[in-house]
């Protein structure tokens, strides 16, 4: 041992103790993760694949500010959500034409889990997601990965989406604690460089602080009504032409189907007994 350390033995002990304690924390980490994560931070992981996720999270709020409760749980069909999300278009930074907010693969990934999450979430919970896909790059010579992250909730009869990023630059090897794929926030607007294309039944959210250009509300009922009308028109056109197919929108399911779905959710323990009874009564009241 060096002269310096001979006169400074505790140094050795401190380093060794640090090594042992840090390593033991690592070993202990396997079994104590649940205990260390604060309850409610990540309540329900609906989907996880590498950096992609769909999960139920607590509503975000500034300190001392009360956030209006969401109308959760709510049963929205997968196709209903998929159609609504698919209708969104955006003009991204430095692009000369608009593009869909979500790719087909991204819709396939998130729509079922958002539907499941909205049916299982409580009034003080949102659905947060981040989804990745490959997009053309270098004038179409290559593909590069981009991500879209947002927060979804149902309130005032509308599906609200607050975006954290749309087709953002994705680096696969980053520490997600330092560079999280963050969903949008009610309190801090995203520093976005995109503009949504004006679409029927879609609107920017306007709150006390003015219009939020990263927060879109989708009027699903209006969309559904128009889609149903279009469906009827297509059916009529198909009947007139003798065609047997042509439907492009899945109409709302029957009461029986909805009760079955609700029952499935309860059996899978995705919703509580109280939520089940409340929603069951709501469905039956439509009879």
């Amino acid at each position: 041992m060096s002269k310096v350390f001979r006169g400074f033995l505790p140094f050795h002990a401190i380093i060794a103790a640090a090594l042992v304690s840090v390593m033991s924390m690592g070993i202990a980490g396997c079994s104590t993760v649940k205990a260390i994560i604060p309850e409610g931070k990540v309540d329900k992981e609906l989907f996880k694949s590498r950096d992609q996720f769909v999960r139920i999270v607590k509503q975000d709020a500034a300190k001392g500010v009360k956030v209006p409760p969401n109308e959760h749980p709510v049963i929205l069909e997968v196709e209903q959500i998929r159609s609504a999300l698919a209708s969104m278009e955006v003009m991204l930074d430095k692009q000369d034409k608009s593009s869909p907010v979500f790719s087909t693969a991204q819709l396939d990934t998130i729509a079922p889990h958002i539907s499941r999450g909205l049916a299982a979430a409580g009034p003080n919970e949102d659905i947060a997601f981040a989804v990745i896909d490959s997009f053309k790059a270098v004038h179409g010579l290559a593909k590069e990965q981009k991500y879209t992250a947002a927060r979804v909730f149902y309130r005032d009869g509308k599906l609200n989406i607050i975006f954290g990023n749309i087709q953002g630059f994705y680096q696969h090897n980053q520490d997600r604690r330092i560079a999280p794929l963050a969903p949008g926030s009610r309190t801090v607007p995203a520093k976005q460089t995109w503009v949504f294309i004006d679409q029927p039944d879609q609107a920017y959210y306007s709150g006390p602080d003015g219009r939020r250009s990263d927060w879109i509300t989708l009027d699903l009922a209006a969309m559904e009504a128009k889609a149903a009308a279009a469906d009827v028109a297509v059916k009529k056109a198909a009947e007139a032409s003798g065609a047997t197919e042509g439907r492009f929108y899945q109409p709302k399911k029957s009461v029986e189907e909805r009760l079955t779905t609700l029952n499935d959710l309860k059996e899978k323990k995705l919703i509580s007994e109280e939520e089940y009874q409340k929603k069951r009564a709501a469905i039956l009241s439509e009879l």
């Binding site: 993760v33 260390i36 994560i37 931070k41």
Partner: peptide
């Protein structure tokens, strides 16, 4: 490496 434990990793 442990999972993320409220910002901690070992």
């Amino acid at each position: 490496t442990t999972p993320d434990m409220s910002g901690f990793k070992v």
